[in-house]
């Protein structure tokens, strides 16, 4: 583990600092490596998407986004995220609280089970709901008799999305709350604060950024999920297509520019939320210093 940052330059700088940062050269090299990595792995695909999106010009771009099917897909995607994210946030808070504030048997198992949806192939995360609620599934006949549609309709899409984004908030909070320990809360309790108040006044301010991160990630993934949703959606145009599925359809129709245009919209949404978040963060840390 010790050799994790294997930068030889680092050793040369050993004698230098008396304060809490590295010499400029090391800093720039580290920044350089990090940016190069990010550039090759993340930025390039993004640039490709944007270049392709505008290949046919602005008019085509706008047209792709204002297509009624695209709007219907956008609406479904947002509705799905609006249901899945709050539910997973509540769950994430509860799970993180239980896991980091208490000691109990089977904690490792619980943490691992929470991680499990990450490890489940998206193909499978869709399939399991088909096995449960599909016409041939365990509850299928009952649902059909009562005229309830779950798979190939919005509920199925929401369920699959919830499954896929299930661990995000919890996963973000657990390590954070772990390092923070329980002292603050215990102090509050010993001063007479109770339950909900402890959480709101003591814990929440400490974890708010982690929580926000978690929600943003959860949201981004909820809007971008493809594999699982593709299995339960039924691909009915204008009805059960989410944005990612709409993108696939466009791509398969040789409408490359349009499909990348819609992808860039998803990308933009993600980058925008993150930018707003970091701006807020910056402003607040500045007002904090002042």
């Amino acid at each position: 583990m010790a050799g994790i940052v294997t930068n030889p330059k680092r050793r040369n700088s050993e004698a230098a600092p008396r304060h809490l940062t590295e010499p400029a050269a090391v800093r720039y090299i580290l920044i350089g490596i990090a940016l190069l990595f990010l550039g090759l792995i993340v930025l390039l695909p993004m640039v490709t998407v944007i270049v392709e999106a505008f290949r046919k010009g602005w008019a085509a771009y706008i047209e792709a986004l204002s297509d009624p099917d695209a709007l219907a897909a956008l609406r479904l995607t947002l509705v799905t995220a609006l249901i899945a994210v709050p539910l997973n946030t509540i769950f994430g808070l509860c799970a993180a609280w239980a896991i980091t504030k208490f000691k109990f048997r089977g904690k490792n198992l619980l943490v691992t089970l929470i991680d499990l949806p990450f490890a489940v192939s998206p193909v499978i995360s869709g399939l399991i709901y088909i096995l449960l609620f599909g016409a041939q599934g365990f509850f299928g006949p009952w649902l059909q008799d009562h005229g309830i549609k779950i798979v190939f309709a919005t509920p199925g899409i929401v369920l699959a999305t919830m499954f896929v984004t299930f661990p995000f908030v919890a996963r973000e909070l657990i390590p954070l709350m772990e390092t923070q320990g329980v002292q603050d809360e215990e102090a509050a309790v010993s001063l007479g604060a109770r339950g909900w108040r402890v959480f709101r006044k003591v814990t929440l301010p400490n974890i708010k950024w982690g929580l926000l991160y978690g929600m943003i990630l959860c949201n981004a993934r909820a809007m971008g999920e493809f594999g699982a949703v593709s299995v339960v959606s039924g691909h009915i145009r204008g009805e059960t297509n989410t944005l990612p599925l709409h993108i696939e359809i466009l791509y398969n129709e040789y409408q490359f520019s349009a499909s990348f245009a819609v992808s860039s919209l998803l990308m933009l949404l993600a980058v925008l939320t993150l930018l707003i978040k970091s701006l807020l963060e910056n402003r607040m840390s500045r007002s904090h210093e002042a």
């Binding site: 088909i130 609620f133 599909g134 016409a135 041939q136 599934g137 299928g140 059909q144 549609k149 798979v151 190939f152 039924g234 691909h235």
Partner: peptide
């Protein structure tokens, strides 16, 4: 697609 129809689409 055939599977989806079998499963209730």
């Amino acid at each position: 697609q055939a599977r989806s129809v079998i499963d209730g689409l």
